[in-house]
């Protein structure tokens, strides 16, 4: 049943020092639909492709707002992402109440890393099966973070995760020096949508399945959906 003897739980190292269960959890991200994040010096943009179960059902939420300056998009197990969303909302509001200050993205990433790491070192429970692209702004400017089930959280200029995300990543790698300098938010969104289009196979983007999240020094975290994304298609 198992691929080898060492992949049954998160507390067993393989002879080469790998943790297969944690690696498998990271695979869950690829089961989810694609999401892409990118940033300039002033803004961060998240774009995501929403999925629906069948024609009559509604679409699965792709982007969640956690505070006025902070939100994320997800790929993988959405229920796991909601647990993490609640945690981030709690931490953000705690910071706001106690210090009168919006939570710093660096601090948030350390907290998330610790929370996720715990699940990779103990037998009970399992690692989170979701990847997050976190966008936010704080005293140090705008940030785009990528969260992984391993507990690794990294700060990037652009990131692409989910099914067939490689096309988007290649686009970002080729373009990041250009879009980093963009002042205009709409232009940055256009880059995001273009990157997203590199990952599509059978789907086509429309107002129903495209979800966009933006945040910047001059704009609170905002989710654009439905007719608001029409002009970016």
């Amino acid at each position: 049943m198992f691929r080898n003897n060492y992949d049954g739980d998160t507390v067993t190292f393989s002879p080469t020092g790998r943790l297969f269960q944690v690696e498998y959890a990271s695979e869950a991200i690829k089961q989810g639909s694609v999401t892409i994040g990118l940033r300039s010096k002033k803004h961060v943009v998240l774009v995501g492709l929403k999925r629906n179960e069948d024609k009559l059902s509604s679409y699965q939420k792709k982007i969640i707002k956690c505070d006025s300056h902070l939100g994320f998009s997800l790929a993988g197990l959405a229920p796991d992402a909601r647990i993490l969303a609640n945690y981030m909302k709690q931490q953000a509001s705690y910071n706001d109440m106690v210090y009168g200050k919006k939570i710093n993205l660096n601090k948030l990433s350390e907290l998330l890393a610790l929370k996720a790491q715990k699940t990779t070192q103990t037998y009970s429970g399992r690692p989170y099966g979701v990847g997050l692209l976190i966008a936010g702004v704080d005293n140090l400017g705008v940030h785009l973070l990528e969260f992984q089930p391993t507990g690794n959280v990294t700060e990037l200029y652009g990131a692409s995760i989910g099914a067939r995300s490689q096309g988007g990543k290649t686009y970002l790698e080729n373009e990041f020096e250009n879009y980093l300098e963009i002042e205009d938010l709409d232009e940055l969104i256009a880059h995001g949508v273009k990157a997203l289009k590199q990952t599509l196979k059978d789907e086509t983007l429309d107002i129903a399945n495209l979800s966009i999240g933006v945040v910047g020094e001059d704009i609170d975290f905002t989710i654009l959906e439905g007719k608001h994304v029409e002009k970016y298609l």
Binding site: Y6, T12, F13, P15, T16, G17, R18
Partner: peptide, 24 residues
């Protein structure tokens, strides 16, 4: 070598040794 805290007949803790592999 499948479980932490287990000695092998020659007195080794394999899981701990494997953890060191992650460092290498």
């Amino acid at each position: 070598d499948l479980s932490n805290s287990v000695f092998s007949p020659d007195g080794r803790n394999f899981q701990v040794e494997y953890a060191s592999k992650a460092v290498e």
